[in-house]
Design a protein around this nucleic acid. Structure first.
Lengths: 140, 140
DNA sequence: TGATAATAGTTGAAAATGTAACTAACAAGG
DNA sequence: CCTTGTTAGTTACATTTTCAACTATTATCA
């Protein structure tokens, strides 16, 4: 029997994902008391502009209850505001406040540095292969 | 600003890991009411033979409280038994029962199939690159 | 129109996880 | 031996996540 755990892809992916997130997570947790979902919501708004919770759910593939709670937390920290939409009063458009935008750009800079560090020692070609395959698996 | 979320490696890894685990997770959850840590503990014992909880903690890099609870759950389902070690009565050697071994081989077969499916459409060379890079990131 | 279904988002309870403190057994140095 | 430290494993508690039910609003179509 030759089936090794370290070649089982779901396992490998999980371990790698955990290892890769650890340092960065520590950072946004310590500096902003932020949870992963909160950072992701912040990122989506910062990077792709104002949108509703539903849009974030779809784009980020995060469950709506998680998004709902993340939005509430970010609102509490004054990182974003809501504005209910005229045409459809079920929806609310979310926008980052100046403080939210600042946190976003600080964290983005950190993320970029982090990303480079992770791929140091990996050739550009290999890195490209990895990203392409992962995108495929993730369905992106 | 050109920093895209889908090229940020921790994010990509997490999404891919989640997507990759989903189907398989559904399987062991539905068929055995098993949690991920439980499946991993089962796998370690089935693949690498009897060992103590501490050994699993080290090899699988799972926190000891998770292992402790997984062992208790697997014991409750009669998938493993404990036997305290003569020379060091703090330790207990864990062994799979026949039922545990059967679950192990069924799940392993499933895992193999699953692994192949994930990498279908990816060339053997690319798959090798991915596994190598992921092992590096995961620190394996 | 008006009944039924669908959608955006929230909430509460249950399950799972993480963290820290704990028990019990061994180790080592005086 | 006996104090102090270390290790294996468990337990308690706080935080997060998940799941299902819920409100409010809009869409569908007979």
């Amino acid at each position: 029997m030759n089936f090794d755990l370290t070649s089982f892809l779901p396992y490998l992916l999980n371990q790698a994902a955990e290892a890769a997130s650890l340092d960065f997570q520590r950072e946004y947790k310590a500096r902003y008391g932020m949870l992963r979902t909160e950072w992701r919501v912040l990122f989506h708004l910062g990077r792709y502009g104002d949108m509703s919770a539903r849009d974030i759910v779809e784009r980020a593939m995060i469950h709506k209850t998680k998004v709902s709670r993340a939005v509430a937390a970010l609102e509490g920290r004054r990182f974003l505001t809501r504005k209910s939409v005229e045409e459809d009063r079920r929806r609310e458009v979310l926008s980052l406040t100046p403080a939210g935008r600042e946190a976003f750009s600080e964290l983005t800079a950190l993320a970029e540095k982090h990303d480079v560090a992770l791929m140091q020692g990996v050739s550009a070609e290999d890195a490209a292969v990895v990203r392409r395959v992962l995108r495929g698996i993730a369905g992106l």
